[in-house]
Structures are given as C-alpha cells and as structure tokens.
C-alpha cells in the first residue's frame, strides 16, 4: 500500500492542454474519487497515474517513487476498466491469474491467490466460465478480482459501474466500498456520477476543464462548496441559483427578496449569486410566495418546480404537497444553509 502524489501534473496533445497542472495528495489507504462532467480530464488523469497516458509535465509519485517514465506493469497498480476488459478467450480463473503468470508466480501460488480473491468476491463457482457466459455484475466482479489478486499498491477504477443498470449499480457500489474497507488499499476511482462520489469517497476531487475545482470530504463539499461549479455539481437535484444584489433588506433577486444570514451583510451592495439546495426550503406561511409550475410526487418526498420571483427553482419537501400548477405556496429558505457566490468568478463569499 502506498500514498500517491501528483504535483503540477500536466497533459497536452500538441498545442491543446488537457490537464492544467493538478496537485493532489492521496494518503495511504484512502479512497479518492475523481469526479466531474465528461471531458473534464478525470479519466486522462487516472490513465496518467496508471501509465497508459504519457505525462507532459509535472510528476506522479506512487509510494514515494517517481513513476513518470515507468511502464504500467512496473508501477504496481491494478486497474478496473469501464468495459471490464476481460480477455474473452480465457476463463475467469485464467483472467484473474493472468497478471501473476507474467510476474513469475508459481502455479500453486497463483491458484491460491485466485482462490483467495474468488472467495472474497463470491466468484468461486464461476472460475471455469468464460466472460461471455457471465452477467454484467459478474463480469464486474471478475474485473475486480483480477485487480485484487495481485495485491497491488494502488487500485484504479475507471467508471466501472457505468455499464450496469441502476439497481445493480447500487449493489456494486456497496461491494466496492466494503471491499475497500476489507483490504484498505489506496484507491483512485473515476466517475461522472456525483452520487457514487458522495457515497463511496473518503475524499472527492472535483475536476472541471482540466483543473481541480475543490478537494475535500464528501459532506464538506456538500456543505461548503468552494465555488458555484462545485455547488451545482454536487447534490441531486442540483442547487438552485438566483442572481441578484446583496442589500440591507436581504438578497434582491428579480421579482423577489430573500432573507440573508447575518454574516452576509459584510458583502452589502455587491452583485452575487444566491445558492440554495432544493431540500433547504420549508413550507412556512410566513415565507416568500412561490408559484407552482410542476409537482412530482416521489412517495418519500415531493419535488416541486416553482417560480421564485422570475427565477424557476426546485424544492424538495418531505411533506406531501397536493397543489396544482398555478397555485401559490409560501416557502422559507433555511438561511443558515444559503450559499453566496461572487457574480464575476463564482467563488464562495460567505
């Protein structure tokens, strides 16, 4: 096991820069999730750690050793690919033992390691099958088995759950997490799904346009996003944003005046963006008026699209709202969870 350090890592294809200097420290045994919209460079970054992409600048260290010029096989990493990349012409057992064969393991030792991994993942009955005979979830497990069998210093996961259906994804999410808790191997996990990031990570790295937007524990990112991008990316349904002015009376958005926390008054007379999560509205007859546009009952909660002044926003209520579009309700934003971002660069103010 090892820590992974990225210092000022850059990637460019010709004149086009893909990664603009990423600094990141990953502690031994940590589960780090790289998350961001497609094209943000998260997969490229992972593949640079793996050695599948060359590093144009900066330095990648695994276990204190600079690995920039090392082959993937010499980095002591294992990777789980998006499409599993199981060798179609080999059985499950051969797939899992393949890397050990090429590292000069003895037959008995390989068989033992494969059995150990298969037991952990519940693959023992499938060892003689071929990948085409397996279901999606089983393939996923074999891909993980192939990774753990070698006991590498670092696990790398490249969107491993994106090919599974929604239900299986939740199951596998849990399995990967409990596997990590069992093995405590340093893990770097790439996904575009912020729910996966929130539920699995010890530490989330939010990437956008080849730059790190924020690094932090999941709930820190949720509670105190560093900028408007992270605020909008983390959390589902996404945070609502209203553009307006911070005044003495409150936040003046088009057609509406919203209450502000005490701490916000030092930014008075500034153009800003008011961010409030859908779950941070409460139904309150003393609140501000909101015109209902759409009501979507989910059972456990109700998602309501409404107009707050001239801005359309989303609210999520535990209560059952049985109102039809066009009606007006009164809602109160929880001012302690309101986020203020600078209108110009989107950085957090409060």
């Amino acid at each position: 096991m090892a820590e992974v350090t990225l210092s000022d890592v850059r990637k460019s294809y010709g004149a086009v820069d893909i990664i603009h200097g990423v600094d990141l420290g990953i502690n031994d045994g940590e589960f780090v999730v790289l998350v961001g919209p497609s094209g943000c460079g998260k997969s490229t970054l992972l593949r640079m750690i793996a050695g599948l992409e060359t590093i144009s600048g900066g330095e990648v260290k695994i276990g204190g050793r600079v690995v920039n010029d090392l082959d993937p096989k010499d980095r002591d990493i294992a990777m789980v690919f998006q499409n599993y990349a199981l060798y179609p012409h080999m059985t499950v057992a051969t797939n899992m033992g393949f890397s050990l064969e090429h590292r000069g393991g003895g037959k008995a030792e390989i068989a033992e390691r494969v059995k150990w991994a298969a037991d952990i993942l519940g693959l023992a009955p499938l060892l003689d099958r071929y990948p085409r005979q397996l279901s999606g979830g089983q393939r996923q497990r074999v891909a993980m088995g192939r990774a753990i069998v070698r006991n590498p210093q670092v696990f790398l996961f490249d969107e491993p759950l994106s090919n599974l259906d929604a239900k299986l994804r939740v199951v596998m999410r849990g399995e990967i997490k409990s596997l990590h808790q069992k093995l405590r191997t340093t893990t770097v996990y790439v996904t575009h799904d912020q729910v996966e990031a929130m539920t699995m990570a010890d530490k989330i790295v939010v990437l956008n346009g080849g730059r790190v937007e924020q690094i932090g524990a999941p709930l820190d990112l949720y509670d105190r996003p560093a900028n408007q991008f992270v605020a909008g990316f983390i959390g589902s349904p996404a945070m609502n944003f209203l553009t307006g002015m911070i005044t003495a009376e409150g936040f003046a958005a088009p057609g509406i005046l919203l209450p502000l926390p005490e701490s916000a008054h030092k930014f008075r007379a500034r153009k800003a963006i008011y961010g409030i999560r859908p779950e941070h509205f409460v139904l309150d007859s003393s609140g501000v008026p909101a015109e209902i546009v759409l009501v979507e009952p989910m059972g456990s909660e109700t998602q309501v699209t409404m107009k707050l002044g001239e801005t359309q926003i989303t609210g999520v209520f535990r209560e059952r709202v049985s109102l039809s579009p066009g009606a007006t309700i009164r809602v109160r934003p929880d001012i302690n969870t309101a986020h203020l971002f600078a209108a110009d660069d989107g950085q957090r103010l409060n």
Partner: peptide, 20 residues
Amino acid sequence: VAQDHASPEGRSSSPFWTIA
C-alpha cells in the same frame, strides 16, 4: 525500476527507451 535517487528538480532522469 525504483530510480529513487532523484535529480535536483525532484525528477528522476528519463531513460532513453521511453514507452513511446
């Protein structure tokens, strides 16, 4: 493997036979 004696900038010197 394991070229840990890093050069002053903290980079190990690249081998001639790079991956590419």
